[in-house]
Write a protein that binds this DNA or RNA. Structure first.
Length: 180
DNA sequence: TAACTAGCTTCTTATATAACAATGCATG
DNA sequence: CATGCATTGTTATATAAGAAGCTAGTTA
């Protein structure tokens, strides 16, 4: 069982934009400081996901806790832009989920030094003085697992929940094999 | 010297450590 | 009232991904 804690997605409106004008118009939800960063930040609500919009019309969504939430804020974002006549229609060129950050746990405390050897030193990094978690890059999955002594695991870098679940399941099976 | 590439900035989120700052409370 | 210890809070460390723009370094 893995729980999604963060989703990153990106898309493109397909048009060049005047961020200065948009930020002035949508003052209450847009934060734009080109000296600090070239993107304009959109946020609908206090703990809502963040949308970063760029001059080129490309944008990214961070901080959503599900694919559904990411798609919902995207729609709200497109509706506001089309409603303000910034965009001709509430549609965009493409939209893709880029990264899932998930949390799970194996249900027991883990000896990370032993785990590093068990999983293989070429696929793990464990330097407790630098960071308390073990970094595991499984050869058969396109994602990274951060494993902690408490048994909690962070899976990040996958572009679908299925990949994340598969990576965690094979990891958990390996734990059982290594520490029966 | 121009063009190119690589690396960094910003942001989000869980996780867990240490090191530090700042505050609270009690005792002398 | 001042000093000491304890607690709470913040920062750093590391991970992935997207985006634009700046800088630094390399190469022709």
């Amino acid at each position: 069982m893995v729980e999604v804690v963060n989703v990153v997605a990106s898309g493109s409106l397909g048009v060049e934009l005047d961020l200065e004008a948009i930020a002035g118009d949508l003052d209450s939800i847009v934060d734009y400081d080109p000296d600090k960063y070239p993107g304009a930040y959109f946020r609908f609500g206090d703990s809502a996901p963040l949308i970063t919009l760029y001059r080129t019309g490309k944008y990214i969504i961070t901080g959503a806790s599900s694919e559904k939430e990411a798609r919902t804020v995207r729609e709200e974002f497109l509706n506001i832009l089309s409603g303000r006549k910034i965009l001709p229609s509430a549609e965009d060129d493409w939209f893709q989920l880029q990264n899932y950050v998930c949390m799970s746990e194996v249900g027991e405390n883990l000896n990370l030094s032993a785990l590093a050897i068990g999983l293989g030193l070429e696929v793990t990094e464990y330097e407790p003085e630098q960071f308390p978690g073990l970094v595991y890059r499984p050869a058969e999955h396109d994602c990274v697992l951060l494993v902690f002594g408490s048994g909690k695991v962070i899976i990040t870098g996958a572009t679908s929940i299925q990949d994340t679940e598969e990576a965690f399941n094979t990891f958990q099976k390996r734990i059982v094999d290594l520490f029966p």
